[in-house]
């Protein structure tokens, strides 16, 4: 690997995380991160291929796209890769019936499944307020009834930023269930290899010609690097100063925000 800057390599495709990179979520919906709306437009206009890889599981892809369009972003549903559709694919391929521990907003993604039938697996998402002792205990018991227990986790993020505060993501709750049942979850979404590779395949770009831009150093940056992409860390969203010296992941670059990343990328292409 040649030393030097991440933008010195031939980049044909960019994967963008959504929450914390395009916008910050709030109770009222969300606030665009300054410069991000223009950055996406400039990136697309330059001919670089773009896909959006999110671990958002509180709503359907359609709802997410509608919300982002209202904020001013240019994107469409087929460009968005999210864990719920990936989970549904896995359920269908294996003929599984899920017990869902998810936020109600994402339920329409699972309408193809008979949720009244005896479950053969558990699917956990970022259920936020739905996480409490009763729902966790109920899910724990469903897992105990399966032999072996099948736990599918839509992402394993530790936390995210919402309305100025850090909030627990799905990961801690998945780890809680894994610990109690002594099982290992199947992860769909980031940092699952198939998730990144699926998005790359869709835009016809090889990993070495692609870059992932994210605010989650482990799941966005580290996950992409393990698949052969470059990983770029933004200093927005859930970024914390301690991420600059992360014990496991060393990003290919740090940028202030998405606009900064796109500036560097496009300046280099024009040379």
């Amino acid at each position: 690997m040649a030393s030097g800057n991440w933008y010195d390599s031939a980049i044909e495709g960019v994967l963008l995380d959504i929450t914390g990179v395009l916008y910050n979520s709030t109770d009222e919906g969300g606030v665009p991160i300054p410069g991000s709306i223009e950055a996406v437009k400039r990136l697309k206009a330059s001919g670089v291929r773009v896909r959006f890889c999110t671990n958002e599981t509180q709503c359907t892809r359609q709802q997410l796209v509608d919300k982002l369009q209202r904020l001013g972003f240019e994107l469409s549903v087929p460009e968005v890769f999210a864990p719920a559709p990936a989970a549904c694919q896995l359920l269908k391929a294996r003929g599984l019936t899920p017990h869902l521990l998810v936020y109600p907003g994402v339920l329409p993604e699972f309408e193809a499944f008979d949720l009244g039938a005896k479950p053969t697996c558990v699917v956990v998402g970022d259920a936020a307020d739905i996480f409490n002792y009763e729902t966790m205990n109920n899910t724990f018991r469903k897992l105990l009834e399966m032999d072996p227990p099948v736990l599918i986790s839509m992402g394993v993020g530790k936390y995210y930023r919402h309305g100025g505060e850090l909030m627990l993501d799905v990961g801690p709750f998945t780890k809680a269930l894994e610990y109690a049942v002594r099982c290992e979850a199947i992860v769909v979404g980031k940092p699952d290899r198939n998730f990144f590779l699926g998005a790359l395949q869709d835009m016809g770009v090889q990993p070495q010609n692609a870059i992932m831009v994210g605010d989650d150093i482990v799941n966005d940056v580290g996950g992409a690097q393990k698949c052969g992409l470059k990983g770029l860390q933004v200093r927005t969203g859930k970024f914390r100063p301690s991420d600059e010296h992360h014990p496991e992941v060393r990003p290919d670059g740090f940028v202030e925000n998405l606009a900064h990343a796109v500036d560097l990328l496009l300046q280099h292409r024009k040379k």
Partner: peptide, 25 residues
Amino acid sequence: AKYFKRQDGLALGPGAFVEGLEYAT
């Protein structure tokens, strides 16, 4: 503890939630 016995069956112990907080932090 991972779980404990309640009259209505096994129930999640505090260990699961401790494990979750450890993972998050």
